[in-house]
Design a protein around this nucleic acid. Structure first.
Lengths: 146, 146
DNA sequence: TATTGTTATACTCTATAACTATA
DNA sequence: TATAGTTATAGAGTATAACAATA
């Protein structure tokens, strides 16, 4: 190994604390107050990866199929997704995000980014500090995607 | 202002995405699988800041007083917190974390840090990259605490 | 009167078990 | 038989409204 375990542990502790606190702070910024994190996560998945079956969505969100059925019911009632029967395998149901659903995800992301950008701006960070945050972001995504 | 809006917005978007993904990944690591995020957050607050009234806990966790009453009931049934009537103001109830509650918070934090340290180790990050993550963590905490 | 906490009630998200329809 | 999805039912966490006890 190239670095001592101490460096890894210290870095992990710092990063864990900072990540949870910032996520918690940003999570409460939404396009629609009534929208739950669970619903928003389903919409974000559909927006990024396109139509998915109930089972595929349940696996991705790590919930059971009945839970996903329930959640898709709620989203469909709000007009944010639509169910389409699968032509090839008639047991399956494809779930698509609607334009209204896309708009809510886009607006939530925009609000969070604006809120965070404003926080960064208020602290008068230097270009060097902002660059550090961007480099760290790239490293964090490597950790998640590894 | 010292830096262009573009830098702020780009940094905010990178950091928002990385933060949410890493938090989501680490959130599923717990000492006890049956423990919810909400319960864990209450325990962590009590461990860090000491005894608190129901109202103070509700404000800190941004939930209503009835919700906090409900959650404290659940934690008390599990022996993780205890209610103590306030001697000075008998309307109040002080909530204290027990040794069992402290142990669960400590174990969860340790598991998450170990999981993250292992992820960092597997990617063979350099000392420079680890330092970038620690610097970014400090900046993120400044954002949250500002 | 105002504040602190609880109870009553309801809605959402979660689960497991049992069911239907299809492969 | 196995798979995809739904329904039935239950528990946890959330809310608002109404209440009791205390300040």
């Amino acid at each position: 190994m190239s670095v001592p375990d101490d460096s890894l542990q210290l870095t992990a502790t710092d990063l864990r604390m900072a990540t949870f606190r910032l996520a918690r702070r940003l999570r409460c910024v939404r396009a629609v107050d009534a929208m739950s994190d669970a619903q928003l996560a389903v919409l974000a998945t559909l927006r990024m990866h396109g139509r998915r079956t109930i089972t595929a969505l349940a696996e991705r969100e790590r919930v059971t199929a009945p839970s996903m059925t329930n959640m898709v019911n709620g989203l469909e009632e709000q007009g944010l997704v639509v169910r389409t029967p699968d032509a090839e395998d008639r047991r399956r149901v494809q779930v698509d995000i609607t334009d209204a659903g896309i708009a809510i995800v886009a607006q939530t992301i925009q609000r969070r980014d604006e809120a965070l950008a404003e926080m960064l701006g208020e602290l008068d960070f230097t270009e060097t500090e902002l660059a550090t945050l961007r480099e760290a972001s790239a490293l964090m995504r490597k950790v998640v995607d590894r």
